[in-house]
Structures are given as C-alpha cells and as structure tokens.
Amino acid sequence: MTKLDFFEDIAMSIDYWSEATSDALTKPDADLIWVDEQELYHRLQKLFANSGVNGDDLKEVLAECLRGFAISVLTAIDGGTALAEKGRVYVVDGDGNSLGEGLHDDFVSHLLNTGRLK
C-alpha cells in the first residue's frame, strides 16, 4: 500500500457516500437499507422535492463536507490539533512503514491532482 492508494481509497469513499446520501435524500426509490432512521430520510426527501433541491448540487455539498472531515481527521493524525498534546497517531502500512507526515496537505494535493477539488 502506498500513500496514494490510501488517499485514493479515502477519495473514493467520499465519492461513494456523497452520492449515496444525495440519492437517499432526493430519490424516493433509493435503497435506504443502510440508514438507521428511514423516516427521517423520507421526510427530508419530501422537503427537498418540494423545494426543488437538485440531487447533483446536494452531492457536491456533501462531498465538500466529507472532504473537510477527511482533512480534519488527517490533520489530527499529523499532529495539527490539540490531540498532539496528548500524543500522536501514525498511519503505517502492513510492513510497519509510516505513510509520513503532512498527510492532510498531501491529501489535498491528491484531490487537486485527481480533479476532485478545484
């Protein structure tokens, strides 16, 4: 596993969850088997349908939020939050090799390089 593989896996998860959530909120026929409270989604589906919310727009908003969350988690791993005062967390591969420092910056670069971030 390389750092780029790790970043691509995160980016693909962001793509998947932003689309799955957008569909769950804007498409009445969406499969909601993965949600805990289906009724909440049904209510929001009605609200979004009545207000003319576009599923593609919602997908972009959700992707932005999930990218921000991923960057926040990577920043914590990098020691860029108050967590660093208590200790550090490191990402290592199966051979025990560290994926290095600056993961949050490198992830942003990956998003830019793959066209997921403009």
Rank of each mutant, 00 (worst) to 15 (best):
K27A: 07
L74N: 00
N54C: 08
G52T: 02
L66H: 08
H104G: 07
G96I: 01
Y90K: 13
G68F: 10
S18F: 08
R67E: 12
N50K: 07
S13Y: 06
A20F: 00
H42A: 11
R67H: 14
D78H: 04
S13A: 15
D15F: 02
T114M: 06
D15W: 02
D78K: 03
A70T: 02
H110V: 02
N50P: 03
N113C: 07
E8Q: 14
D57L: 12
N113E: 14
A76G: 06
D56T: 04
N50D: 13
R116M: 01
D29H: 09
E101L: 12
L112N: 08
D78T: 07
S98D: 13
V61M: 03
K59I: 00
L111F: 09
F7I: 06
G115I: 00
G52L: 05
D31C: 00
G80R: 09
D36R: 10
G55S: 13
K27G: 01
S98G: 08
K27Q: 08
R67N: 15
I77K: 01
V35S: 02
H104M: 10
W34Q: 09
T26F: 02
P28Y: 09
D36G: 07
G52P: 08
I71L: 00
Y16R: 11
G102I: 13
V108H: 15
V61F: 01
D29C: 01
V92A: 03
L111T: 09
E39F: 07
E19R: 08
P28H: 08
R88L: 15
G87S: 10
I77V: 13
S18I: 05
T21H: 00
D31W: 02
Y16V: 05
W17C: 01
D106Y: 12
L103G: 04
G115K: 01
V53I: 08
N50A: 09
S13E: 15
E60S: 14
E8N: 14
D78C: 04
D106S: 14
E8S: 14
N113Y: 07
G79P: 01
L40F: 10
G87W: 10
V89S: 05
L40N: 11
E39N: 11
L44Y: 05
C65N: 11
L111G: 12
V61A: 01
A24H: 04
M12A: 09
D56P: 00
D36C: 04
F107S: 03
P28I: 04
L103Y: 11
A70R: 03
L112A: 06
S22K: 04
A63T: 00
K46T: 15
S98F: 10
L44K: 09
N54D: 14
S51G: 14
A82C: 14
I33P: 02
V61C: 02
R88Y: 12
D9I: 05
V92C: 03
E39D: 11
T114G: 10
G102D: 15
S72N: 14
G79K: 06
A24F: 05
L62Q: 00
D105L: 13
V89A: 05
G87E: 09
G94S: 09
D29R: 05
G55M: 07
E85D: 14
E39Y: 08
W34D: 11
A49G: 07
F7K: 07
M12K: 10
G52N: 02
G52K: 04
S98A: 13
N54S: 12
D106V: 09
S109E: 15
I77P: 01
G115M: 00
D105P: 05
V92G: 00
E19V: 00
I14K: 02
A70K: 04
L66S: 07
E37R: 12
S18H: 04
L62E: 00
